[in-house]
């Protein structure tokens, strides 16, 4: 996978953005020395990048997130070092954005500088099995709301369609048309379709740009 200096991961609430952010940071680290995740989720106090602190540290990936993440301090705080993403041009960044348009508001603050530098991709994470984005029409509606909130445009789509631990290969195969339809209607490309380790071998010849999530979220 080709990475720009900044990779922005945004999408519907609960679409799998954080998990993908952590996975892509590990992927990015294979080719770049200086990699960081910037967590600007102001929506959800749970299931944060901070859950992966140890993994990220072990792999030499810097985590920039609110010091209140995963604590009882339930406030929509942004990290102090947020502007490093546009000031530190030597570092490659994954930005993990909070869900929906409400979460994307925080990205709007960074948008002018990111657009000015123009070395970024912004991926829309979709899951066909989330009821509020279960068809292309509703998924595109949420996508436009996010774009309006952060004043940025998506550059690609990540198809993360899954039913958690119950996901079957036919669930993933059945989501390809859905993701392609969103791509067709928005003029974007499906840059990745994600799948967990157990299904990867079965599907790797059947789906373009299939990506194996090495890190699985466990409950």
């Amino acid at each position: 996978m080709e990475f720009k200096r900044i990779t922005i991961i945004s999408g519907h609430f609960g679409s799998g953005k954080t998990n993908i952010s952590v996975n892509l940071a590990l992927e990015l680290k294979k080719n770049k020395e200086d990699v960081a995740i910037l967590d600007i989720d102001i929506v959800n106090p749970y299931f944060r990048t901070k859950d992966s602190t140890q993994l990220l540290e072990e792999n030499g990936i810097k985590l920039i997130c609110s010091e209140y993440a995963n604590s009882n301090v339930d406030i929509p705080a942004l990290p102090q070092q947020i502007y490093g993403v546009t000031d530190n041009l030597k570092s490659s960044f994954i930005i993990d954005v909070g869900g929906d348009d409400r979460g994307a508001l925080a990205l709007g603050r960074l948008a002018p500088k990111i657009k000015e530098e123009n070395d970024f991709d912004m991926y829309y994470v979709v899951n066909k099995f989330r009821p509020l984005t279960s068809d292309s029409k509703s998924a595109i509606e949420v996508m436009r709301e996010i774009e309006f909130a952060c004043k940025m445009k998506f550059t690609g789509i990540i198809n993360n369609s899954n039913l958690g631990l119950e996901t079957t290969s036919s669930d993933v195969l059945g989501s390809v048309d859905y993701a392609n339809q969103i791509a067709k209607e928005t003029g974007l490309k499906v840059v990745l379709t994600t799948v967990n380790n157990s299904l990867y071998n079965e599907l790797k010849d059947k789906i373009d740009n299939l990506y194996c999530l090495t890190l699985q979220k466990k409950l």
Partner: peptide, 13 residues
């Protein structure tokens, strides 16, 4: 068909 939901969302729907 099944959908993937948070417990809170499932109550609401």
């Amino acid at each position: 068909d099944k959908v993937l939901m948070k417990g809170n969302e499932a109550i609401a729907e």
